[in-house]
Structures are given as C-alpha cells and as structure tokens.
C-alpha cells in the first residue's frame, strides 16, 4: 500500500492565473416538496480544472450536477455554463450545450439492449449525426482503446462487470469530445486497482484534452489523485474548500471525518 502511494502524490496546486470560468454557480437552491436539498451552492469551475465534491450520501451532490445539465431546474440562484444562463434555455439551446458536457452516471447507464459498439455509436449517429461508417468505427475503436476495453466491443452490457460498465459509460461520454465532464462517483464499488486506473484516466483526459471536471466521490484515494480543488458539502452547502493538502490539516470535524477514514 505504502509503495503505491508514492506515485500518487496529491496533486500540486496549479500556478494561480486568471482562467476562463466554465461553470459559474451562485446561491443555487433546490427543494423537493418540503425537503430543502440544496440551500446555497456556490462554486466556479475553471477551464482545465478538476474539482472534487465530497459529502455524505443523500446530501444533494448528484442533484447539483443534474442542475448543471438542465435535468433539474434550480429553484433559485445563478447558474451559468460557458457564460450562458442555463435556466433560461430552450430545448434546442439545451441540446447544443449538452453536446459539450459529458455526464458519467453512477451506474454507467449503458443501454442494455445494445452491444457495446452500438452504445458507443449511439451519440455519434444520434447527436453528432455522423454518417461515414469508417469514421464512426475509428472513433469507437479509438475511445474503447483509451479505456482499455477494445476486446469487449461486441459484448452486451449484461456480460460486463461493474468496472467495465463504468469504463464503457466513460467511453460513451468521451466519444463526443466534451469540454466539461461531470463524474458521479466514478470509482464507487470498484476494487482499489481499477479505482486508481479510473482516477488516473480522469487526469490523463484532463491533461490531454483540457477537460474541466466535477468529480463527485466518497473515495479519498480518487480525490487525492484527481483534485485540483476539493469542496466539502454538508447540509445543502459547501462548508470547506481547498486543495487536498490544505483540507487534510483542517480542524473542521466534518472535513476531518473524510480524511481520517481508514480507507
């Protein structure tokens, strides 16, 4: 365990510079019935940055990123993506925006009536409306290769393990070259080795394509590997923010409970 830790040092903080903000959220509120889930969510995601969101189960982490892609409408607050107010968009504008955002679902959300290949072709033919089968094949194989699953191309999702499903799900969102990635618990339920592979894959993507990411996780290993900045969520708002190293030394009890977990 010790040994492995050496090459997965917490990320160094990038040199501060004025960067383009891709997601701007200020004072987001969201309730379901009487239940206030989000009370005051404020954050900025800069271009090329990975932010990690930590928080207990049921705190509204998934709800936050669902607001970002317009699956849910916030009840109040400002929410801008690429500088545009997402709450005022019509269906077409929303569709255009969604093409630039990748969303990795907790369970992978593979279309289980289709093979892996058809799953990956789906966004190419339905969203990008590509026609050239050669180009499609090339993209499908390229992206499967990137997640290391080229030999699963003709399998059905039901024949894949949980980790493989997640990687195919990742491949399916990456295939359209998104500028923002939203990861909902990318490593939950995976063994430590696969988890680390996925965390490192997230970093590679960030560097290679300059993808900006929000990563929701309970997995501190994943947080340490991927985070440029960590936000800790409690009771509908963020109670702490900082790099892994900074938060590690925090004396807030809630924050400590994440870092002291014997995981």
């Amino acid at each position: 365990m010790k040994k492995a830790d050496e090459h997965t040092e917490p990320k160094k903080k990038e040199p501060e510079q004025k960067q383009e903000v891709v997601i701007h959220a200020k004072g987001i509120k969201k309730s379901f019935g009487k239940k206030k889930v989000l009370k005051n969510i404020t954050f900025d995601l800069k271009k090329g940055e990975n932010i990690v969101v930590l928080g207990k189960s049921g705190q509204g982490k998934s709800v936050t990123i669902q607001c970002v892609v317009g699956m849910l409408q916030p009840d109040g607050g400002e929410l801008e993506v690429f500088g545009e107010n997402i709450t005022a968009m019509n269906d077409d504008e929303l569709k255009q925006l969604r093409m630039k955002i990748g969303f990795l679902f907790q369970g992978g959300a593979l279309y289980d009536s289709m093979t892996v290949r058809d799953n990956l072709e789906f966004p190419l033919t339905r969203v990008l409306k590509l026609k050239d089968q050669k180009e499609i094949n090339k993209k499908v194989e390229g992206v499967l290769d990137a997640v290391g699953l080229l030999d699963a191309i003709d399998k059905m999702p039901s024949d894949l393990s949980g980790g493989m499903r997640k990687r195919v799900g990742l491949a399916r969102t990456l295939i359209v070259n998104p500028e923002i990635m939203l990861y909902d618990e990318p490593t939950t339920g995976l063994d430590p080795i696969t988890s680390r592979e996925i965390s490192e894959l997230i970093n590679r993507l960030q560097r290679k394509y300059e993808i900006s990411s929000v990563i929701i996780t309970h997995d501190m290993e994943c947080a340490r590997i991927t985070a440029d900045r960590i936000l800790v969520m409690d009771d509908g708002e963020y109670i702490a923010e900082g790099s892994y190293k900074e938060l590690e030394k925090s004396d807030n009890e809630m924050v400590r409970s994440f870092f002291n977990e014997p995981s």
Binding site: V69, M71, K95, Q96, R98, M99, I101, F103, F105, Q106, G107, A109, L110, Y111, D112, S113, F122, P123, R126, V127, G169, R172, T173, V176
Partner: peptide, 21 residues
C-alpha cells in the same frame, strides 16, 4: 417494464443528457 427499467438505471436520463432524443 422495459422503459421503467431504463428509467431506473438512468438510461433514459443518459440519453437525454447526451443531447439525444
């Protein structure tokens, strides 16, 4: 049952969020 299970496993959401219809 088919659409219900696609809903539960977030396949319908995934389609929608990817910009497909």
């Amino acid at each position: 049952a088919e659409l219900g299970s696609m809903k539960v496993t977030e396949q319908i959401d995934a389609m929608e969020v990817s910009g497909a219809n």
